[in-house]
């Protein structure tokens, strides 16, 4: 079937369709929307994409993505240097930052141990984690990994790896989410919640 758009537009639509959450149909809608809002959206977006493409780097200290090394979080003097939060990916870091529960520093592993996907300890940022945790200023390492078998296997591996260091190693609690109804929770989550119950 002949294309209804030129090759440049077709390429834009194809690239947009590769973004998470977008398919070919929604990519066409997004492309059309960008064209309609040419001055307000398309040009600024193009500029922003170019700047990020030129400047974005991975922080050599923590694994976060930013436009400077060290990243803004690692440079921030207001963050508590005694607490290091270990996360699987940058999206998890962003989620914890949105929650604003702790004003700490992070360490991005870049994945979790997964025999099925062939991910072993050498594929993760574990050596740099050991170096950072050995810093006398660090008193606690919080392992904020997913409550999955792979995530928790990685958490135990890290706990073993850091056991010779004088740091407290903790992990996130597992249990009932806010707004969760017991009747709809899986048995495993209920078991975890019962085991980690707290005194009122």
């Amino acid at each position: 079937m002949a294309s209804s758009t030129g090759p440049e537009l077709e390429r834009l639509i194809q690239l947009l369709a590769r973004l998470p959450g977008l398919g070919p149909r929604s990519a066409r809608r997004a492309a059309l929307h960008l064209i309609r809002k040419r001055e307000a959206l398309l040009a600024p977006l193009a500029d922003a994409v170019r700047v990020v493409a030129d400047r974005v780097v991975t922080c050599t200290a923590c694994g976060n993505v930013d436009t400077s090394i060290p990243c803004a979080i690692c440079q921030d003097p207001r963050r508590d240097p005694a607490v290091l939060i270990v996360v699987e990916s940058v999206s998890d870091l962003w989620a914890l930052e949105r929650a604003a529960a702790l004003n700490a520093r992070y360490h991005v592993l870049g994945g979790v141990l997964s025999p099925l996907d062939g991910v072993g300890p050498d594929d993760l940022n574990l050596a740099s984690l050991a170096e950072r945790a050995a810093d006398p200023a660090v008193a606690e390492v919080i392992i904020a990994l997913n409550a999955t078998v792979d995530g928790q296997t990685t958490a135990h591996f890290i706990t073993d790896m850091l056991q010779h260091l004088p740091v407290k190693v903790t992990r996130l609690a597992h249990g009932v989410p806010v707004g969760g109804e017991l009747d709809y929770l899986d048995e495993g989550t209920l078991v975890a919640a019962i085991r980690q119950r707290t005194t009122l």
């Binding site: 025999p115 409550a147 296997t153 135990h156 597992h174 899986d186 495993g188």
Partner: peptide
């Protein structure tokens, strides 16, 4: 459809997770 959902029972144990990892491999 879920049957016996055991995962949460052994997530707190390094030995259990590695036993299961070995058996799966």
């Amino acid at each position: 459809e879920g049957g016996q959902l055991r995962a949460a029972r052994y997530m707190g144990s390094a030995l259990a997770l590695n036993l299961l990892g070995a058996a799966v491999a």
